[in-house]
Design a protein around this nucleic acid. Structure first.
Lengths: 209, 209
DNA sequence: TTTAAACGTGAGTAGTTCTCACATTTGCTA
DNA sequence: TAGCAAATGTGAGAACTACTCACGTTTAAA
């Protein structure tokens, strides 16, 4: 699945471009990487191809980016700092509950729009390296599991819109998986809190109309 | 990041073990893979190492598993069918809202326990191939973003438990990201519905105590 | 016993990331 | 302007890895 010797954060510090020439070249490298990720995904992106498209040698590429990950991270960083400013601005002006409603709603729309429109962000932030086929298997499986939940909901609320129930069940299930993944990535205590909060939220959604 | 020629579902059909000898050997291969994933993660798992630990040649390994993914999938499948039976059983007996509450609550606990206890499941189902360092960056970033939300919540509800508010904000933010990732993996229409449902759910959580 | 199919082997192929010894360019100082 | 050290640029090749294939061995059935 990889050619890297290991998964350790080898990220040895590389020289930072200090002269104008090299800064421009680094910019070209990032642009090339961005284009290739948009076209093929970061997994299929080849370092040699990045160098070629940027018009630099493979050695130059590695002079400023210690490994393949580094160039992807550099791109990711641009998006995140940009996004962070946007979020900060939108929430800074909130002063009451209604304001929060509006700001949050807009924020979700903006983010969703970004995810839909930016192939690079899409690739980097969502299962980049994870292989697509496995993701589809997971989805199919999750759908099957959510199906059991849907069946129960339909039984308990025969008058509700079936599509809406299906959406709710699938959403709750997927969120549950996401929370589990999150919970095992943080400290045990926080993980427990997050799972508990999820449970409370999901139950509220499941038991009220 | 990989040595595979491409990301396409090459999954050419391989011979299925029909004799007892080969069935046992396949079992050993799976056991070896499982152990290695538990020790190092599936990304660092080397096919040669799997073969060696299973006491078979690399050729034999590839006789039954077309590629590296296949052996990981095979392991994943075992967990999922097991889990599916568990879910089905737990939800089949639900007949009222209170029953749903209990069944769902238990299910979450069981799943969380599995995630915590099973390193292989953990690896396969959560950012398997995704690199750990990037995941930590994402988390730090998400925490920062959730921080803005936390600040607003603290402002609007000065009497609430700060830790609880932080947990809620982080959870909502992470769920949002998960829903976006999900939304772009399914058909546009369903994605839109899922995002809308998430928004409704999150807003309810944000505006009621 | 014969025989065809299933099974087993491991050196070798192809394709990747990343290195390194060396050449070139730049900016600074005398 | 000449001199020079640091920054920058190069690409053949080192080091790994997933995966193949031609050939040898075992199994089960006729």
């Amino acid at each position: 699945m990889e050619g890297l010797p290991s998964n350790e954060p080898k990220a040895s510090p590389r020289r930072a471009p200090s002269q104008r020439r090299s800064r421009e070249r680094v910019e070209r490298m990032l642009a090339a990487a961005s284009a290739l990720i948009a076209e093929q995904g970061s997994d299929a992106m080849r370092m040699g191809e990045v160098a070629e498209r940027a018009g630099v040698s493979i050695g130059s590429l590695y002079q400023f980016f210690p490994d393949k990950r580094a160039i992807i991270w550099a791109l990711a960083e641009r998006y995140t700092t940009e996004g962070q400013a946007c979020i900060s601005a939108a929430l800074a002006v909130v002063s009451d509950a209604e304001g929060l409603r509006q700001a949050f709603s807009e924020l979700v729309d903006i983010y969703y729009g970004l995810f839909l429109a930016e192939p690079v962000m899409r690739d980097i932030w969502s299962g980049t390296q994870a292989d697509k086929a496995l993701r589809q298997l997971e989805l199919a499986d999750s759908r099957a599991n959510a199906g059991f939940l849907t069946a129960v909901l339909k039984l308990l609320r025969p008058n509700a819109d079936p599509v809406s129930l299906e959406t709710t069940a699938f959403l709750i299930w997927q969120m549950g998986e996401a929370v589990m993944r999150l919970a095992i990535s943080v400290e045990r205590q926080e993980g427990d809190r997050l799972v508990a909060a999820y449970k409370r939220m999901a139950l509220r959604e499941l038991t009220v109309a």
